[in-house]
């Protein structure tokens, strides 16, 4: 039986693009930004540099929030006061990630978690990483539980820059 012509296409190879058999155009955009932190995040970062976690409080909604903001998004009034909260909290949820942000495969997985910070309203906290929780999935899943108590591990004071990375990670804390 005669093979029908063009029944299957010819697959494109990476090489075809490289040698210009298939033409494309390329462009790299210089999309660089410097975001103004403003009042709330500016002061929050100042606090992190000093090893403190600062929150703001709305008395009407009885709500203490971190990262702080100058207005309450519930009642839409300015926040009433700044308070320092503890650098401990509980794991609200976590995941075990085998890829870095740019999809580079990781030997040792990262453990992103939402940490509810002690002193803030229930459910309020921030995204960070867990550390000292094991090097592989089995170890991590044995140690990390939703609701587990954690404590911040800070960079040495002279290395802090006023950024969320001034906290290296949160590690398990004895109950």
């Amino acid at each position: 039986m005669m093979k029908p012509q063009n029944a299957r296409g010819v697959p494109l190879k990476d090489e075809d693009l490289k040698v210009g058999k298939v033409l494309t155009t390329e462009w790299r955009v210089k999309a660089d930004y410097a975001w103004d932190c403003g009042i709330a995040i500016g002061r929050y970062f100042d606090g992190l540099k000093e090893g403190k976690i600062l929150a703001t409080r709305c008395r009407r909604c009885r709500r203490t929030v971190v990262p702080p903001r100058i207005f309450c998004e519930w009642c839409f009034k300015p926040m009433d006061e700044w308070v320092e909260v503890r650098d401990t909290g509980r794991v609200n949820t976590f995941s075990v990630s085998y890829f870095s942000w740019d999809m580079t495969p990781l030997e040792k997985p990262e453990v992103p978690a939402v940490v509810e910070i002690d002193g803030c309203s229930p459910g309020v906290g921030f995204m960070h990483l867990l550390g000292e929780v094991g090097d592989n999935l089995d170890e991590i899943l044995r140690r990390v539980k939703v609701g587990m108590k954690v404590r911040a591990v800070w960079k040495p004071a002279d290395q802090r820059t006023g950024a969320i990375t001034d906290i290296l990670y949160f590690k398990p804390e004895e109950e």
Binding site: D36, C37, G38, F71, F76
Partner: peptide, 26 residues
Amino acid sequence: LSPEVSFREMVFEAACRAYADAGLEP
């Protein structure tokens, strides 16, 4: 330049004025 406020804080100011001007709650 407006380094003293974040974009959120800048918009909050404008929104507060608009609500007050209209005499409306959000």
